[in-house]
Design a binder for these strands. Structure first.
Length: 302
DNA sequence: CGAATTTGACCGGCGC
DNA sequence: GCGCCGGTCAAATTCG
């Protein structure tokens, strides 16, 4: 089961976690998935609606690395010095790549800061205004997929220490104008308001696990782009996403079938990954899981 | 018939 | 103190 998860998830999340793990602490505090939506480097792209199997080289790499470890061990007996040199060179090249990635992320981060730290953010509303709503341009700039999202901390400043407020931007199908963000959780609508700065009504939802789960969300169409939904989440779920459970059951069933017949073949894993990633519930659950994972990581650090 | 949604009323924070 | 505004409540309505 763990192996299956690994195969299916590894090429989706691997780059994300790699970049996240190598970010400087100040950058990690930014806690923005927007870094992974940046278009300057495809390795940073975490387009959840893209079939991940186009990066097929990822899965064979896992197996290759296992084999090469064995080869390394045998060669280590024969030529330990050469082996160490080879290892050193390999690490150097990896460091170089990581440094390049880091520079790209730094550049994107600075661009974002320049773009949104100016007067636009300062002319906020007279009320509490815990967050800004001026990220539309960002999503428009980067929203080349059908679902673009980013998460920001409170106060609208990406470098703010994380709190329990996050925003998600979702580009909707133009044919589907219902103000619903499918994020894998079940919500109960408890109110709707037309706000002053946006003719589209804002819908208020509570997690249907309430009062056990304190999470609320607000959903409203973007002023500049009606096809864009802005979902503001407050609080953190204290339970698993129902979609995660569904996916877990699907994977468990598939794993039972596979292991009962033969060893796991690459094509079967690919087929399975392709099937479940076409499932909107899976992509939503994956997005929620990735965000949750990063937020947990952030919480541990703080 | 129960659950979910709608919608007008109400509440509290904030600026003037 | 008053009015504006965002957020919440709860009765009425709709839906499956």
């Amino acid at each position: 089961m763990i192996l299956l998860y690994k195969y299916v998830f590894i090429h989706l999340i691997n780059q994300t976690l790699l970049v996240k793990a190598n970010l400087p602490k100040t950058l990690r505090s930014a806690n923005c998935l927007e870094f992974f939506n940046m278009s300057t480097d495809t390795t940073l792209d975490i387009d959840l609606n893209t079939n991940p199997m186009h990066k097929q080289s990822e899965i064979p790499n896992v197996e290759f690395e296992k084999e090469s470890v064995g080869e390394r061990k045998s060669s280590m007996k024969d030529k330990p010095v050469q082996f160490l040199i080879q290892q050193l060179n390999q690490m150097k090249s990896e460091n170089k790549k990581l440094k390049e990635l880091q520079n790209i992320v730094y550049g994107n981060y600075n661009d974002l800061m320049q773009k949104y730290s100016g007067d636009e953010l300062m002319k906020t509303r007279k009320r509490k205004a815990p967050y800004t709503e001026n990220y539309d341009n960002f999503v428009e700039k980067n929203g080349n997929s059908t679902c673009s999202c980013c998460v920001e901390g409170s106060n609208g400043t990406p470098n703010e220490i994380f709190s329990n407020v996050s925003k998600v931007y979702v580009r909707m199908d133009p044919s589907d104008m219902s103000p619903v963000v499918k994020d894998g959780y079940h919500w109960r609508k408890y109110g709707q308001k037309v706000t002053r700065d946006n003719p589209s009504p804002r819908a208020y939802y509570k997690c249907s696990f309430a009062p056990t789960c304190p999470v609320k969300k607000k959903v409203q169409r973007s002023v500049s782009d009606p096809s864009l939904l802005v979902a503001t989440y407050e609080g953190r779920h204290n339970h698993k996403s129902p979609s995660e459970d569904e996916v877990s059951i699907e994977l468990s069933t598939a794993a039972t079938e596979i292991t009962s017949s033969s060893s796991i073949s690459k094509s079967m894993v690919e087929q399975m990954a392709s099937t479940i990633t076409r499932n909107p519930s899976f992509t939503a659950a994956l997005a929620a899981a990735v965000i949750e994972r990063i937020l947990d990581h952030e919480k541990e650090e703080n």
